[in-house]
């Protein structure tokens, strides 16, 4: 891509006690691009995300925002730059309605009083532009389905007009139809020019929406792949760290048997 990346990570390292969770990790996210971050459990995906989101600042390395170096030491720093994170547990308040959740922590006020009308108006606009289908913005989040809750959580991250959105396993607990809803939403984020980092275990989801795929293994980069010129097998072998993996062996054996 010709334009500079919105977010660039260079040589990020993070140690927890005796564990080198992240070592010389690089990542680039451009506007209007979905970057999938994949890797086995413990590969360092969460650590990488937490260093971007300001939860666990990195020990070494450079984070560049729109070409200039920044330091992200607190979640607040990340939010102020325009990085929004949707964690796996969503952190929605079940007892509040959709509007209450969308604007939680940044309520609109009029004369010091909550401006419910304007918040409701803006909520509807936001949900409409993202084509999110919610029965009503005035029902408690508790009564929404898992997919709807996920979309509400993603919509909430967009209230502050971020430029980069990090989605941590957004489809992990969802059914087929709901997963489709969330993937649609990820594509709409791209259409709106946002950079998206998608963490996922599900190769089908990743191949469906990602533009680029960054593979992590044992806390390091293990290859960047362009969706158009790669295969699921190639990525899986990068994740497992060997072309000679259980999967490829099985496939080879099957081919033998077929012959």
């Amino acid at each position: 891509m010709p334009e500079p990346a919105v977010l660039t990570l260079r040589g990020i390292s993070k140690r927890f006690g005796a564990v080198q969770a992240l070592k010389d990790f690089d990542l680039e996210v451009h506007a209007g691009e979905v970057v999938a971050l994949v890797g086995d459990n413990g590969a360092g995906k969460s650590t990488a995300v937490k260093s971007i989101a300001g939860v666990n600042p990195p020990d070494e390395g450079v984070i560049e925002w729109e070409g200039r170096a920044v330091s992200i030491n607190r979640p607040h720093d990340a939010q102020n730059l325009g990085i929004a994170t949707v964690y796996q547990d969503l952190a929605l308040c079940d007892n509040l309605d959709v509007v209450g959740n969308l604007f939680l922590g940044r309520e609109l006020r009029r004369l010091g009083v909550l401006d419910e009308v304007r918040m409701e108006q803006r909520s509807r606009e936001l949900l409409n532009t993202l084509s999110i289908r919610i029965p009503s913005v005035r029902i408690p989040v508790a009564s929404l389905s898992g997919g709807q809750r996920q979309t509400v959580a993603i919509a909430r991250s967009l209230i502050g007009d971020p430029k980069v959105v990090i989605l941590d396993e957004p489809t992990a607990a969802l059914g087929v139809e709901q997963t489709a809803e969330v993937l649609d939403l990820v594509e709409r984020l791209r259409e709106h020019g946002l950079g998206t980092i998608l963490i996922s275990h599900n190769m089908v989801d990743v191949m469906a929406v990602a533009d680029r795929i960054a593979v992590m293994r044992l806390g390091r980069n293990n290859g960047f792949f362009d969706k158009r010129s790669t295969t699921t097998e190639e990525i899986i072998s990068a994740i497992t760290g060997a072309t000679d993996s259980a999967v490829t062996r099985r496939q080879a054996r099957k081919r033998e048997e077929e012959r």
Binding site: P75, C93, L104, G105, V113, L114
Partner: peptide, 21 residues
């Protein structure tokens, strides 16, 4: 008021309230 909304938020989901600042 914002303050009242925060009370409900903390009562609903402490972690959610904390993440919302």
């Amino acid at each position: 008021t914002t303050y009242g909304r925060r009370i409900f938020a903390v009562g609903g989901n402490i972690e959610g309230a904390r993440r919302a600042g």
